[in-house]
Amino acid sequence: MEEEKMQDDFRTYKERSYLNFTRRPLFHICILLMVSVLGAALFCIVALSKATTLSSELSELIDESPKPRTGHDYELFPCDPDTREWEYHNGKCYYFSLQKTNWMQARDDCAVRNSKLVVIDSMPEQNFLMTRTRNDRYWMGLTDRDTEGLWRWVDGSSYYSGFTYWKPGEPNNSGNEDCAHLWGSGEWNDVYCSYLCYYICEKPMPSGKQGKGT
């Protein structure tokens, strides 16, 4: 009887030992699987974040890189596609301001744009400007501020042997009017230089693009 009890106890011990032996590896395997899943998820998150950053940097580089210019771009904007605020006419480029200012500031603003206040030297140029400035007032590069009655163009061109298009009765120097502008129908008028009106800047056609038609 004693011997049978010992055998039963031994059998129970073996079964418990077997269960403990089988449970431990399963627990370890579950832990390893969880760690692997967490590691894979973390890797995916890091990789996705890195890919998003690289994509954003690539997009910025593409946006900042110079865009290729086609011949069609220059046909539409011969004064340069990057400066579409300038209008082309007969070998020159013109900027028509959107804000009003006095004559001195207008002259300086044109200089900042590597240009000068417009110097009108022909009827075709006058006609072009008249169509763009009708019913508004625009400064031009003509003044007698230095010597009353001695009109000068800002580029040194000869005024007295060149083209003029004064309104009848002008210039009359009424009230110390020393600067000229286009007004109304586009005729020239003298007015005091602190008057506020729009202005026109002028510069030559960019190098290499001369000879295109209007």
Rank of each mutant, 00 (worst) to 15 (best):
F96Y: 12
H72A: 08
P81F: 03
T70W: 12
W103C: 01
D121V: 09
C79H: 01
S122K: 10
N102V: 07
D121Q: 15
K92F: 08
L117S: 05
C79Q: 00
G91D: 13
M104K: 10
W103F: 12
R84D: 13
Q105R: 10
L76W: 07
C79I: 00
L98N: 12
G91A: 07
N90D: 13
T83S: 10
D80T: 02
S115F: 04
R107Y: 10
L117T: 03
N90E: 11
R113Y: 14
L98P: 11
F77H: 07
C93M: 06
T101M: 14
T70S: 15
M104C: 05
K92N: 14
R113N: 14
E87G: 00
D121T: 15
K100D: 11
Y95L: 15
N102G: 05
D73P: 02
D108T: 09
N102C: 00
Y74I: 01
A111M: 15
Q99M: 08
R107H: 12
Q99H: 14
K100W: 04
V119K: 01
H89W: 08
V112M: 12
H72Y: 13
K116E: 10
T83N: 09
Y74C: 04
C93E: 00
L98F: 06
E75C: 07
E87K: 04
N90G: 02
K92I: 00
N102P: 04
K92R: 13
R113P: 06
C93K: 01
L76T: 14
S97R: 06
A106H: 07
F96T: 01
C79D: 00
K116G: 02
F77P: 04
D109E: 14
L76F: 11
T101H: 10
R107P: 01
D82C: 03
H72V: 07
P78S: 08
N102K: 03
K100S: 09
A111C: 10
Y74K: 02
G71A: 11
D80S: 07
R107G: 08
P81M: 00
V119D: 05
A106M: 05
Y94R: 07
T70M: 15
A111N: 13
L117P: 11
F77K: 00
I120T: 11
Y95V: 06
Y74W: 12
V118F: 10
A106R: 06
L117Q: 04
A111I: 12
S97V: 12
V112W: 09
S115H: 02
N114G: 11
E85C: 05
P81V: 03
C110W: 07
C110M: 05
R113C: 12
Q105Y: 10
D82Q: 13
